[in-house]
Design a protein around this nucleic acid. Structure first.
Ligand SMILES: [Zn+2]
Ligand SMILES: [Zn+2]
Ligand SMILES: [Zn+2]
Ligand SMILES: [Zn+2]
Lengths: 151, 151
DNA sequence: TTTAAAATTGTTATATTATAACATTTAAGT
DNA sequence: ACTTAAATGTTATAATATAACAATTTTAAA
């Protein structure tokens, strides 16, 4: 599905961005939060909370569910990670500085997910809710289907 | 949020439509499925599976989780009910014959949800996935926020 | 109209996802 | 150093959903 040639590059740049963003915002990017973000970035397949938990257990941490969910909460609040409600899984944000009007294509064959942006889409959605005099707080837009490489 | 003057009318017309659709499609709209749909239609606030379960228990049925989830599966397959992934709740489809390119506005104050359609939105989404050579199977589009009547 | 097959429902158990509540430790500011 | 706030540890439990198999009901064939 993805235009990812060298995934090490994805991971490294995501972690570097996260460092900078937390530093700028004065947030504490602890070892635990850092490791959870890294585990999520291990692939472009959205990670399940309890899989992250299992991987953490293999390391130094005495990890239990709250350990993971707290880190996930922090990462979501900071915009570094998104939850995909249609599959109950978590994926790293591919552009955490300018996330806005994004949606997700999720392949049910290879399980990879891709974060996309479309200004037309954002406009159409905005038009829709102003017509309904609705004040949006959170938009969930996820498309399940088959990606181009899984035919 | 809604333009619902007399909710009895909503319920009656939804049930009648469901009857017709199941008849046309040769599907068995059993008492159980019928009752679950009616319970969902009791309000415009999406229903939680275990709340439906509790209400069923008050009636003739020896209801257990599979009882409800099976009925919900049937109703979703038939297009009579939608699951809202962002809140894990179920709502009756307001136009089950022509459901297509719909999205949901969900008020976090009054908890009501409204099913809307927007051709521009549908077009924008279609454009987006063809650009990504993606074959969509299911679109989830839900907006959490505050409705016009809850300010 | 019996009988076989299929669909539906009943029942028990368990899997999956997530949070509450309180104790302990670590980091930051004074 | 002392105080406070934030983060993490720990135990328990809540909330959501499915697996597996048995019993019943409906449909359809023989
Ligand atoms: Zn990559
Ligand atoms: Zn993003
Ligand atoms: Zn109504
Ligand atoms: Zn609908």
């Amino acid at each position: 599905m993805l235009d990812c040639q060298n995934h090490e590059v994805c991971i490294e740049s995501a972690m570097r961005e996260a460092d900078l963003i937390c530093q700028e915002k004065g947030l504490r990017f602890t070892e635990l939060r850092r490791e959870v973000l890294r585990l999520i970035w291990l692939s472009h397949v959205p990670a399940k909370a309890y899989d992250i938990l299992d991987k953490l257990k293999g390391k130094a941490w005495s990890a239990k569910p709250p350990t993971v969910y707290r880190a996930l909460d922090f990462l979501q609040e900071t915009g570094l990670v998104h939850k995909l409600d249609s599959i109950n899984a978590y994926i790293g944000c591919s552009h955490p500085r300018e996330h806005n009007g994004c949606y997700f294509l999720i392949c049910t064959d290879c399980n990879e997910a891709k974060e996309c942006c479309s200004p037309e889409l954002t406009d159409a959605i905005e038009l829709a809710w102003t017509k309904n005099s609705f004040r949006p707080k959170k938009v969930t837009l996820e498309v399940l289907g088959q990606c181009g490489e899984c035919e």
